[in-house]
Each structure stands twice: as structure tokens, then as C-alpha cells.
């Protein structure tokens, strides 16, 4: 993977940015997520989280199985507010 390759397409996060934070000592995926906003966009991490796990594993010498996956947030897919509140302005 080249450094400027985009890992998170929702928030434009590159391999370089992730590696730089890991080198600064931020090796917890919950913390990487919040500082770089990976997995916080509309795709809910479907694209980026597996890639981040592999970068993290490679950089820290851990096996990907040892790294916990961040908790998924509801809703699983974006839902229109209108659908949830019943459409009217009230």
C-alpha cells in the first residue's frame, strides 16, 4: 500500500495518517477511530475497518485476531429522519 492511498472513503483518511498516529503511540483502534474519524461515516466502517486492522497488525506485530473490532453503531445503514418521525412537521 502506498502512503497516500485512501483507506476511509467517507472521511478521506490515508494509510500515511494512520501509520503516523500508530508511530506516535496511538495503537488502540477505538482511539484511531476517533482521532481520524475512520468508521464514523455513512459506511459504518465496512470499507475501512478491515484495512485499518491489517495496517495496525502489521505495524504493531500483533495478529489481526488479537485486535478487537470497534463497536458498530446503529443504524446499520443511514435512515431518513422523516421515516423515523412519521413524515409530518408536527
Amino acid at each position: 500500500m502506498s502512503g497516500n492511498m485512501i483507506v476511509c472513503r467517507c472521511n478521506d483518511v490515508t494509510v500515511e495518517e494512520i501509520e503516523a498516529l500508530i508511530d506516535e503511540g496511538v495503537t488502540d483502534i477505538e482511539e484511531l477511530k476517533r482521532l481520524l474519524r475512520i468508521g464514523m461515516g455513512p459506511c459504518q466502517g465496512r470499507t475501512c475497518i478491515p484495512l485499518v486492522l491489517s495496517i495496525l497488525a502489521r505495524r504493531t506485530g500483533k495478529s489481526p485476531d488479537e485486535i478487537p473490532v470497534p463497536r458498530a453503531r446503529v443504524p446499520v445503514r443511514p435512515v431518513r429522519v422523516e421515516v423515523l418521525v412519521g413524515g409530518g412537521d408536527e
Partner: peptide, 13 residues
């Protein structure tokens, strides 16, 4: 803010 009805919810925590 009525225009919010057109927006999508992406996260709840």
C-alpha cells in the same frame, strides 16, 4: 429545524 427531516441519521450512541 424542520429541514432536518430530509437528512439521514448515521449514528446513535
Amino acid at each position: 429545524a424542520p429541514p432536518l427531516k430530509h437528512a439521514h441519521v448515521v449514528r446513535q450512541w
